[in-house]
């Protein structure tokens, strides 16, 4: 897999999340991702940014445009925070699980919206979530 371009965006407030949304939209338009896939990726990003703000008070997002072949292009986003971490990842990935007051759709729902989903977390050190959406799927 080759990385075509990359950029890091710091997230501290909700306004930064709006800015991130605009940047990601630009990348999607650049590789001509379909509208539905674009919306799915942006919605997934929105869920993850909320988690970052709520549980870790912010973090950084690495935005990359990646390609595997001429036809397989996609946008990859990596959300890294230095928050409390997740104690039980398997439980957090189940529908309806929440330590906060949300619906508990955040992580499992996000996974359904993207092509690839990867989560790493260390208690007390932080969490890193990587999502990737291919342009046609």
């Amino acid at each position: 897999m080759t990385i075509i371009s990359k950029e890091t965006i710091a997230i501290r407030t909700e306004q930064d999340a709006v800015f991130l949304r605009h940047r990601v939209t630009e990348y999607c338009v650049k590789i001509r991702m379909g509208l539905v896939n674009q919306t799915k990726l942006l919605t997934a990003a929105s869920e993850l940014v909320r988690n970052m703000l709520r549980y870790a008070g912010g973090g950084v997002v690495l935005c990359e445009v990646v390609s595997q072949s001429v036809l397989m292009m996609g946008v990859r986003l990596t959300f890294t925070d230095k928050g409390p971490g997740i104690a039980d990842i398997a439980a957090a990935m189940k529908d309806g699980f929440s330590t906060g007051k949300s619906l508990g759709l955040g992580l499992p729902g996000t996974k359904r919206l993207v092509s690839q989903f990867d989560i790493k977390s260390q208690l007390g050190k932080g969490t890193s979530v990587t999502i990737l959406k291919w342009k046609n799927g």
Partner: peptide
């Protein structure tokens, strides 16, 4: 696109 995403989200 929003409707499809909401359904996929659950």
């Amino acid at each position: 696109a929003v409707a499809i995403t909401l359904i996929e989200l659950g």
